Computed example of a mutant assay.
Amino acid sequence: MGTNKRSRLLLPGLLALALLAACGKSGETRHASGHEGHDGGHTTGTSGLEASFSFAAGHAAANEKSELVIRITDRQGNPVERYEENHEKLLHLIVVDHRLAYFNHLHPEYRGNGEFAVATTFPEGGSYKVFADFVPEGGSNETIGEWLTVEGKEAAHTELKADKRLVRAVDGIEVELALGEPKAGEDTKLVFTIRDDKTKEGVDDLEPYLGAAGHVVILSADAERYLHVHPTDEKGTGPTAEFSTSFPRGGVYKIWGQFQHEGRVITAGFVVTVGEI
């Protein structure tokens, strides 16, 4: 067989292998929260919008108040200047540490020209993931996440394990979660029951929190898959609050339910295992 003929036979095979490799790489890096970025860089969301997260002082240290700046731009690098209110806010910022032990739900102030800012304090050093959850004017909901580093002593890494009992007591309120045996890709109902921690009587006077009976944030153990879920009855007042969602993949997830009672926001976290179909 001549050299030219052999080359013509090999070329299609090599091109096919290259295409397969490229597709595999894209599938590994694309997540529900966008592409993972680096400290101070840009992270691209599913619609092509970009978000950059940076500290105004150039760095942040544990137990010190720091200003976090979020800038939203389009594909050409132009600032996205207009946003629609999403549950009473222009942008929801979720902050978690690398262990998913720390959780904070913040609402940065919009300064205009695509820039938001908020002052916050990180309890320990190490890696934190921040998620900007917003709706650009005329667009759909977008969530973009990125890892940031905070100076200071970092807590030891621990494996996230499913809770044996899905009950939490927070500030005198008991929150219980029921969700059956969830499986990836299937509709799952999350039912929270809120009670007085001492009397065990149901709390039926929940107050609206950001315009709804409650909010739920869900993260996979590696913080790469993000879900923000709202109640099926947004005007409910307890003692139960139902949410419906679908987990994108099997594995371990942490679920935070947030409810407001007597002016206080109650946040209860639960770790669950989601099975494969």
Rank of each mutant, 00 (worst) to 15 (best):
Lys5Phe: 09
Arg6Ala: 13
Ser7Glu: 11
Ser7Val: 08
Arg8Ser: 14
Leu9Thr: 05
Leu11Tyr: 10
Leu11Met: 13
Pro12Trp: 08
Gly13Asp: 01
Leu15Val: 13
Ala18Asp: 00
Leu20His: 04
Leu20Ile: 15
Ala21Glu: 00
Cys23Lys: 01
Cys23His: 06
Gly24Val: 07
Gly24Thr: 04
Gly24Leu: 10
Gly24Ala: 12
Gly24His: 01
Gly24Met: 04
Ser26His: 08
Ser26Leu: 15
Ser26Gln: 11
Gly27Ser: 09
Glu28Pro: 00
Thr29Gln: 10
Arg30Pro: 02
His31Tyr: 13
Ala32Trp: 08
Ser33Asn: 10
His35Leu: 14
His35Cys: 03
His35Gln: 12
His35Phe: 10
Gly37Arg: 11
Gly37Asn: 07
His38Glu: 08
Asp39Thr: 08
Gly40Asn: 06
Gly40Ile: 03
His42Gly: 01
Thr43His: 02
Thr44His: 00
Thr44Leu: 07
Gly45Glu: 04
Ser47Trp: 04
Ser47Gly: 03
Leu49Thr: 03
Glu50Lys: 12
Glu50Met: 13
Glu50Ser: 15
Ala51Pro: 06
Ala51Thr: 06
Ala51Asp: 02
Ser52Ile: 03
Ser52Val: 05
Ser52Leu: 06
Ser52Glu: 09
Phe53Ala: 04
Phe53Ser: 02
Ser54Asn: 08
Ser54Asp: 09
Ala56Leu: 15
Ala56His: 10
Ala57Val: 06
Ala57Ile: 00
His59Gln: 15
His59Asn: 09
Ala60His: 04
Ala61Gly: 08
Ala62Val: 02
Ala62Tyr: 02
Asn63Arg: 14
Asn63Gln: 15
Glu64Lys: 14
Glu64Tyr: 04
Glu64Ala: 08
